[in-house]
């Protein structure tokens, strides 16, 4: 079962204060209020814990938007 953007939206709501923003695959950190380098760490860690996966350093560095993150998550989950 592929992870969907709505599941990421839920985590965004937990991690950041911004609860109004519309999330799409093109959403980046600067679209969301309070998404800075430290809350980014919290975000990635929360995603890892929720889906029981671990990203490599390179995977984290290559993320540009939520679409990239979805792809990275789904690549790690059994299909």
């Amino acid at each position: 079962m592929a992870v969907k953007i709505t599941q990421l939206a839920e985590i965004v709501g937990e991690v950041f204060d911004d609860e109004t923003v519309e999330l799409t695959e093109a959403t980046t950190a600067k679209d969301v209020e309070g998404w800075d380098s430290l809350s980014h760490i919290r975000f990635i860690v929360t995603v890892e814990q929720r889906f029981k996966i671990k990203f490599t350093s390179r995977e984290v560095e290559n993320l540009r938007n939520l679409g990239d993150l979805l792809k990275a998550i789904n690549a790690k989950l059994p299909s």
């Binding site: 430290l38 760490i41 814990q49 350093s57």
Partner: peptide, 14 residues
């Protein structure tokens, strides 16, 4: 080590 390398976190966030 991932968190130390990327953000100099002294312990894993959990």
């Amino acid at each position: 080590p991932r968190h130390w390398h990327s953000a100099k976190l002294p312990m894993a966030p959990q």
